[in-house]
């Protein structure tokens, strides 16, 4: 009994200690951001590896998700003779929810895990220590550009995901199943609100980008510097990001569309 209590205490303390370290790490990273703006080259390089290299998976998945939405939506709507609203269903699902959320989950799997592994290995091979001893702040030089790149590329990736998704829905709905093209686009244009839907979707993706970047980089930076430690950190990145994104999505949705 006492043992169990002790373990519970240990686990709780560890949890809060890590949470504290994570927040200190975030503050440290944010504090170095102004300095990194003077060196856009570093951020550009990371934008390429974090953002551009994630494009393929975003494009492919976005198209398929849109196609599935088109198919499922059509099958349901056609029962009510409302298949002309397919454009609205596809667009709202993507812009409000699936775009930001699925893009963030894919981002965690592709870019987040890569960031964690990279930083974790740099730590394990003493590259971060080496930088510190050369009087180069690894948080500013290594972490901050990656964080900024994640933060900037996430909304763009989510937007691209939604765009190709809508096109996927169009392919299935209009080209394959014969929904009227004018109704598809017209109703979509009518029902999707710039402020209520698109802005809110963009805000979500900005929040997710912030969280995904933070978790991935912190996990790498805080990893036990061994092969096993890095592998566990990489797993944690994907799991924690997924949980954080889905949890935050609910909170944000409640705040945005709750009334």
């Amino acid at each position: 009994m006492l043992d169990a209590l002790q373990r519970l205490g240990r686990v709780t303390l560890d949890f809060f200690e890590r949470l504290g370290r994570g927040h200190l790490f975030l503050l440290q990273t944010l504090a170095t951001l102004p300095g990194i703006l003077l060196r856009p080259g570093l951020v550009l390089m990371q934008l390429y590896s974090v953002g551009v290299l994630t494009l393929v998976i975003i494009l492919v998945s976005g198209t398929f998700v849109g196609m599935v939405l088109g198919l499922q939506g059509y099958n349901t709507l056609v029962d009510f003779g409302a298949e002309e609203s397919l454009g609205v269903v596809v667009a709202l699902s993507l812009v409000r929810e699936l775009g930001p959320v699925v893009a963030a989950l894919l981002f965690a799997g592709r870019a987040g895990s890569a960031l964690t592994a990279e930083i974790g290995l740099m730590k394990a091979t003493e590259q971060l220590s080496g930088m510190e001893m050369m009087a180069v702040d690894p948080v500013q030089r290594v972490i901050a550009p990656r964080f900024l790149a994640a933060f900037l590329s996430m909304p763009l990736l989510a937007a691209i995901f939604s765009a190709v998704g809508i096109y996927g829905g169009y392919l299935v709905g209009v080209d394959l199943l014969g929904v009227d093209e004018g109704a598809f686009w017209g109703q979509m244009q009518d029902a999707v609100d710039l402020r209520g839907d698109i802005y809110n979707g963009v805000i979500k993706s900005i929040v997710f980008g912030f969280v995904a970047g933070w978790i991935a980089l912190f996990e790498g930076y805080d990893a036990t510097p061994t092969a096993e430690g890095v592998s566990r950190a990489t797993t944690r990145t994907v799991v924690h990001t997924a949980l954080a994104v889905l949890g935050l999505d609910f909170v944000l949705t409640a705040l945005m569309f709750g009334d």
Binding site: Q127, S129, G130, M133, M134, A135
Partner: peptide
């Protein structure tokens, strides 16, 4: 950091940026 600029350190692994 000012002091470290005047110190060099050779790590066991070399710690080169890969």
């Amino acid at each position: 950091y000012r002091l470290r600029k005047r110190m060099g350190m050779l790590f066991q692994s070399g710690a080169l940026l890969t």
